Simulated scan of single mutants.
Amino acid sequence: MTFTARTPRVAAARKLQRRRDRDQSGRFLAEGPQAVREALAAGVVLELFATAEAIERHADLAAHAEVVSEISEDGLAALAETVQPQGLVAVCEQIDVPLKEALAKKPRLVAVVAEIRDPGNAGTILRTADAAGAGAVIFAGDAVDPYNGKCVRASAGSLFHVDVVRSPLDVVTPLRDAGLQVLATSGYGADDLDSLADDGVLAAPTAWLFGSEAHGLPAALLDAADRPVRVPIYGGAESLNLAAAAAVCLYASARAQR
């Protein structure tokens, strides 16, 4: 049997494109072979929707899914959020963990995205934090949903590799209690990233706070952090975008810690 856009299971899955329905159900969609592969490895796939062509092309993925439902092209179009979908969309269980549980593992590197709204930036930071060896990424305050489709795709599977935490904005005290120094990124920071690296400061277990491009970090977080840190600009650029600045900071810490 081939499901279409009108099939009740497909219609129910499509609702997961809305945050309200994701929050109520505790489920989300992972689209494309890379995301599906990582979701299967994490053991969180509840159902895999795939076109006949995709089932044949990605037989290894279909073989590892407990439930595989063949869908028509119009069914795929209803579930997919990309312009050129690759034939696979998985319904997954949400995997975020409580802050206390993530910090109990004593991570040496943590990224905090505080009230950032852009899902592409959030997913890219997730991917970068994973690559830099971070143990957790904390979505603090009124931040974008980590299970937003664009965020999931931008993370390129890293959503399933690190502890994802959704937390109130007041995260500095628990981070510090877990043995992490808390560094806040700011274009007007008193400390320079290069100087901290030269002085050995970045070798300590560190949580980096990143705010939105439009508004920066909330004042309460900036004031509570141990140090406000600026990324040096050597050329004529006005600034770095959020994801690029996060990459520079996280890799500076990763290098120092190694």
Rank of each mutant, 00 (worst) to 15 (best):
P119Y: 05
V165D: 12
H215C: 14
A219M: 04
V229M: 12
T185G: 13
F28H: 01
S69T: 15
G200W: 13
K15G: 13
V137C: 15
G149V: 08
A39Y: 06
Y188L: 14
L29P: 02
A225L: 06
A122E: 01
S155Y: 07
A140N: 10
W208C: 02
V110K: 00
A41R: 11
L29V: 00
D142G: 02
R19S: 15
A63K: 06
K105A: 07
R37Q: 15
G133N: 11
P33E: 09
A59K: 09
S25D: 11
D21M: 07
A80R: 08
R9K: 14
D177I: 06
T2M: 14
I55H: 15
R258A: 13
A207R: 01
T206S: 01
L169P: 15
R255M: 04
R230S: 02
G216E: 03
A244F: 09
A5E: 05
P205S: 05
D198R: 13
R227L: 01
R9N: 10
V89S: 03
F49I: 03
V44H: 06
N148V: 03
A143D: 08
F139Y: 08
L183E: 06
R108M: 13
L175A: 08
P33Y: 03
L29W: 04
A214L: 11
L99F: 07
V97N: 11
A219W: 05
T173K: 02
L40E: 05
L169Q: 14
F49A: 00
G216Y: 03
H64A: 14
A90L: 03
T128A: 01
A132R: 08
Y234E: 10
L180E: 00
A131N: 01
A42G: 10
P8F: 01
R22K: 05
E38S: 15
F139H: 03
A190L: 10
A30N: 02
V36I: 06
V144M: 06
L126T: 12
I71P: 06
V201D: 07
A214V: 10
A154G: 03
V248F: 04
V182Q: 00
A134Y: 00
P174Y: 04
L221C: 09
P8M: 07
D191L: 09
R9T: 15
V67C: 05
G26Y: 01
A252D: 08
L196E: 10
E47D: 07
H215G: 14
L196N: 08
H58C: 04
P218W: 07
A178R: 02
P8W: 05
I71F: 05
E31D: 11
A104Q: 04
A132W: 04
G123A: 05
Y251A: 01
D198W: 13
L48M: 06
D192S: 15
C151I: 06
N121P: 00
P218N: 00
A111N: 03
T128D: 11
S69E: 09
D21R: 02
V67A: 10
L193A: 07
L159G: 08
V112F: 03
K100V: 15
V113N: 01
K150Q: 13
E73V: 08
A54R: 02
S158H: 05
A102T: 00
A122K: 14
T4V: 04
D60K: 15
D199C: 04
G200I: 12
D199R: 10
R230N: 09
D226G: 07
L180W: 08
E56H: 15
